[in-house]
Amino acid sequence: MAEMQLAGFLKGKTEYTLELFRFFIEEFSKIGYIELHPLKSMIAIESNHKIAYITQLGKNFIHVVFPFNQAFNDNFCFIKIAQVPGTNQYNHHLRIYFKKDINIEVMSFMEMAMLNNNITI
């Protein structure tokens, strides 16, 4: 069932976007075991907790949100950081246009999300 739902999210997307999506998932998988869980409006990336969400598959990009318990404002990769009202969760928005956008900085946030989603530095 989940495979069919995932196929629904990917259906009709450009080959370029699908390639970015596959590359991003492959890079995440190098850090540790992940599972993809299609939800109503996004794809959750999970391990032992929800790590990130793919919220948009555009014509030439993928949009990913990392939830952390603090804002990491000193970065070059996130296009927006927003606190979820009434919580200590800060959603860090990443838009990937090229494979090279998944650089050392992005990989460090991916690792942080994988290791412990509620880390404080």
Rank of each mutant, 00 (worst) to 15 (best):
L10V: 01
T14E: 09
T14G: 11
E15R: 11
T17R: 10
T17F: 03
E19T: 10
E19Y: 04
L20K: 11
L20I: 14
L20S: 14
I25P: 08
I25C: 05
I25G: 10
K30W: 02
G32Y: 07
Y33S: 13
E35Y: 15
L36T: 00
P38W: 01
L39N: 08
K40A: 07
S41Q: 08
S41K: 06
M42C: 00
A44N: 09
I45R: 06
I45F: 07
N48L: 00
K50W: 07
K50V: 10
K50A: 02
I51E: 06
Y53T: 12
T55F: 02
Q56H: 11
L57W: 04
G58N: 12
K59G: 15
K59M: 08
N60G: 04
H63Q: 15
H63W: 13
V64F: 03
F66K: 03
F68T: 01
A71R: 09
D74A: 15
D74W: 11
N75W: 07
C77P: 02
C77Y: 04
F78M: 11
I79T: 08
A82I: 09
Q83I: 05
V84K: 14
P85I: 00
T87V: 05
T87N: 04
Q89R: 05
Q89N: 03
Y90T: 00
R95Y: 03
R95P: 02
R95C: 09
Y97G: 14
K99L: 06
K100E: 11
K100T: 06
K100D: 07
K100A: 10
D101C: 04
I102E: 06
I102D: 06
I102K: 04
I104S: 05
V106Q: 10
E111F: 01
E111A: 05
M112H: 06
A113S: 15
L115C: 00
I119E: 01
